[in-house]
Nucleic acid binder design. Structure first.
Lengths: 237, 237
DNA sequence: GACCAACCTATTGTATACAATTATACATGG
DNA sequence: CCATGTATAATTGTATACAATAGGTTGGTC
C-alpha cells in the first residue's frame, strides 16, 4: 500500500483518465462489477466515450489501489475480498485507528472537534430512526475527521486507503440498527476522550471500536463472504 | 495503498511497461533520481528504447507506490521524504511489525524459523566485521521472512510496501557498526521469542526494535533530511 | 526598466493503428 | 469419445500521430 502522498490531490477528476478511474472505482465499490468480473478495455472505453489509452492507465491505478488485478496479456479482474481479508483488515485498522485517535487528541483543531461533536449528535438522531444510509455517511465522515486531525499524512493516507475495503465489506455484511446505536455511542466516547485531552483513553476506545465492529460482523455471520468466494461463476446476489 | 493483492506477482517484469516500472523504481530507490526531480516521458522512453505509452503506464504505478507524484498536464516528480515522514513511518511500522511478529509466532514454519536462525547467526559475523552491505541485505531478509510467516497477505503487503521507504531512508541516514550489532542482537531476541512460542514477547521486542532503530537515526541526526527539505523549497519557488 | 500580451516551444493527454498474445472453435487422428 | 493441433477471433501490448496545455520568450507599450 502505497503510500500515497497526496493521492487525492494528484488523481485529478477532470482528465479522461481521472474520470475513468473514478467511475470504475465507484462502480466496483458500489458492486456494479462483481468480484472476479473481467473488465474489458474497449467495452469500458466505448461506454465512457473514450479510447483505450486512458482506460488502460486507469486500470494501472486501480490495480495498485487493490481494486482490480491485472494479469499480463490476459485481462483485468475485480479482486475478491475473503473472510480472512476482512479479519486482517480490522486487525490492522484496530491498531492504526487507535494510533490515529491518540495523535488526533494532541493535534485536533477546535473546528474539527466541533464537527466531531456535531457528527455524533446528528448520528444519534439517525441511529434512533434507523436511517442506515445517513449512518454510514456520518460514520465515514467521523473517521475521516480523525484521519485529518492526526496530523500525519502517512497515517491519514494509509487509513484512507483502507476505507475502500470498508465500503466493499459493508456491502457484504449486515449492519443493524442496534449496531448503529452502539457504534455511535462508541464514537461519542472517543470524541469525549479527545475533548478531555485523554489520548490514552482515546486510543483504547478507538481500538475497541474496531474490535467491536468486527465482532459484530462475525456475530452476524459475514453472510455474503463465502458466497462471494464461490460466486465467481454464480453471479447471483 | 493499496492493497495490494499479489502485487509482486501481478507486476510482471517482462512487459515493456513492467521493465520500465522496475527500472525507474530501482533508480529512484538507489538515488539516481533525486527528490523532486522531474521525470520526462520521452527522455526515459528513449533511454530504455521504448515509446511513451509503457512509460506513462509505469508512471501511474509509481505514483500509487508513492515514489513519484504526477501533476496533471505538468509532469512527474520524485516524491520527497521529510523528517516528519520518517517519524511517522517508524511509528506505524513499530505497531505493524509488532503485530506481524506476534502472528508469525503462531504461524511460522520450521523452515522459516530455521532461516531466521541462520540469518541471525550470519549477521552476527558480518556485524562484527562491519560489512554494512551484507547487514542491510540480511536485515531486509530477516523482516521479509517475518512478513511471510505472519500468514496475512494484507499485513505482508502493507509492510512490504513500507520497505521501499526504508530503503530510501537508509540512503539518507547514517548507520554505524554499533547499531548493526545492536540491531542484530534485537533480531536474535525476537527470533528466540518466536522459537519459544512467546508471541507477546515477540510483539514487544519487534515494536521496540523499530523504536530503537528510529531513536538511533534521531541520535545520528537524520543528516540528509534537511538538505532534502531545502531542496523542496528550491523546487517549489 | 517594468509590465503585459501574443506567440512559440516543450511536454503531457488522447486517439488510433498495428503487433503480439491469448482464447475459442473446429477439424483431425488416436 | 477424447486428445491435440491449427486457424480464427478477441484482447491486450506498444508505437505513433495529433490535440491540448503550461512555461517561457519576444516584442511592444507605458
Amino acid at each position: 500500500m502505497s503510500n500515497y502522498d497526496l493521492k487525492q490531490e494528484v488523481t485529478d477528476k477532470y482528465s479522461l483518465r481521472g474520470r475513468v478511474f473514478h467511475k470504475l472505482r465507484e462502480d466496483i465499490l458500489n458492486g456494479r462489477y462483481k468480484e472476479h468480473e473481467e473488465l474489458k478495455e474497449v467495452a469500458i472505453g466505448e461506454e465512457l466515450g473514450v479510447s483505450r489509452t486512458p482506460v488502460r492507465e486507469a486500470f494501472r491505478q486501480l490495480e495498485l489501489e487493490g481494486l482490480i488485478q491485472i494479469i499480463p496479456n490476459k485481462g483485468a479482474y475485480v479482486t475478491g475480498i475473503t473472510a480472512k481479508d476482512v479479519k486482517d483488515i480490522y486487525m490492522i485498522r484496530s491498531s492504526l485507528e487507535g494510533m490515529c485517535a491518540r495523535l488526533a487528541t494532541e493535534h485536533i483543531t477546535p473546528e474539527q472537534l466541533e464537527e466531531l461533536e456535531e457528527n455524533v449528535y446528528l448520528a444519534s438522531f439517525h441511529a434512533s430512526k434507523g436511517h442506515m444510509e445517513q449512518m454510514t455517511e456520518l460514520d465515514n465522515r467521523f473517521h475521516h475527521i480523525l484521519y485529518e486531525a492526526c496530523d500525519s499524512k502517512m497515517l491519514e493516507n494509509l487509513l484512507q486507503d483502507f476505507h475502500q475495503y470498508v465500503i466493499r465489506i459493508r456491502k457484504k455484511t449486515l449492519s443493524t440498527k442496534e449496531r448503529g446505536i452502539a457504534s455511535n455511542e462508541e464514537h461519542r466516547r472517543i470524541m469525549e476522550a479527545i475533548k478531555a485531552g485523554d489520548s490514552g483513553e482515546a486510543e483504547r476506545l478507538a481500538t475497541c471500536h474496531m474490535v467491536n465492529a468486527y465482532d459484530n460482523m462475525v456475530k452476524n455471520g459475514l453472510y455474503d463472504m463465502f458466497n462471494g468466494e464461490e460466486a465467481a461463476d454464480k453471479q447471483t446476489k
